[in-house]
Amino acid sequence: MMSFENVRWPEIWDATKDTLYMMTASLIFTIVFGLMLGIILFLTSHRQLLQQPIVYAVLSFIVNVLRSVPFVILMIMIMPVTKIITGTTLGVEGSIPPLVVAATPFFARLVETSLREVDRGVIEAAQAMGATKWDIVRYVLLRESSPGLLAAVTITAVTLVSYTAMSGVIGGGGLGDLALRYGYQRFQTDVMLVTVALLIVLVQVLQTIGDALVRRYSRK
């Protein structure tokens, strides 16, 4: 029988709050930037409303580059930028910029894919009614793809949870930080188990809420 003698619950609770805060804040920025980037990727792609092969190729390349760099390395690489934005590269604040930079291209691709699922015929029907391109984005693309976008937000939130755990490596705070400091460096396995269990619960909860929302808003 394992005793949880090393576990200090107030500290665990603070770390959980930090994780939730990092995840939520970076998710909000990721949704804003990723939605814009995803819409631009979609609209400039082949045979779409703003078809711009060069713009698409450049954006697509940048997205691919950012997505191929492992998160831990990306975090270290953009430290100077993080310092300029938040004044620090440590703690909860210091981890938000790298989280957003890593998650935005990922989310943008998911947005692009969701928008591609929108029936061409519906876009044409809107054009035939005299809709402008902006009308089409607002009333057709975003609305028709909303279940897909909700699913994309869910996946991104889950991904961000695992990224926040990694940001513990450079003193980012949160549950990952705790697991690393106590579990790995001081061999307090009980602390590590508790933090891992909490991360699992968090991911389960996020996925369940996301799935429920997608089901609730699907019309097909």
Binding site: M129, G130, T132
Partner: peptide, 21 residues
Amino acid sequence: LQRQRRRIGMIFQHFNLLSMA
């Protein structure tokens, strides 16, 4: 052209309705 299109209604074989509305 967008203004003029309001004077021209169109219907389609596969209806092309907004599925989320």
